[in-house]
Amino acid sequence: MSQEKSNVPRRLKFEIFRYNPEDEYSEPHTDIFEIEETPFMSLYIALSKIRETHDPGLQFDFACRSATCGSCGMMVNGRPALACRTLTSDLPEDIQLYPLPAFKLIGDLSVDTGTWFRGMAERTEAWIHERQAFDPEAEEERMSNDIAAAIYEGDRCIECGCCVASCGVANLDDQFLAGAGMNRVARFMMDPRDKRSEAEWFDVVAGDEGVFGCLGMMACADVCPKELPLLEVYAYLRRKTLGVRFLARDDN
């Protein structure tokens, strides 16, 4: 908390990407805003202040402001991050904010993650594939607490899109699953309630848009605000899909 050591608050200079696609006169550019830093100032506080006191047209997204909902991913000094939990005290005085790449721009810092994630969920059929209908009278199926905990670990992704934005492949191919998509697949693959066969999984995740399209640079794992073990996810999926491929070869 460097600002607490000195009594003089810092003057923060924000350089923010601006473009309003709904305004025919708008051209992509950046604007500079200067505000005084306050203790425990997050980018949520700072951006709200800029909008309310400097430029009421500034577009950005926040909802929970507690790093839970995943709305506020943006590029902070060149790196994807959740704005609500980024404290200005951890940043230099000059702060550059850009929208996440790889997603369609809605305006300024706001991007359309909803369409991307719905598309990914549809392509990977990211739901439990069960053989039986729900029986409201029956006791729940048992599961060991360790398996539940392992599934929960994969379920923690908040779909903020930071991994997608950081991914070289996802920036070129909008069908590529990226870290969040791979993690989603692995989460269902390890769930004993999902009855998909290995061959069905192979169709979902093998190929250039899935695990074999990944170049292995693993920026996704570096930027994930939830610190999901994306390296392990990637290794798990490769192992599973390669296993299926070799088995298929043996059969021939």
Binding site: W127, I128, E130, F134, P136, A138, E139, E140, E141, R142, M143, S144, N145, A148, A149, I151, Y152, D155, F188, D191, R193, D194
Partner: peptide
């Protein structure tokens, strides 16, 4: 019923050990 239905939808409920 609602809790068990969520298990059916995939919620990884913490389990009794």
């Amino acid at each position: 019923v609602a809790v068990r239905e969520l298990a059916h939808f995939g919620v990884p409920w913490s389990r009794v050990r």
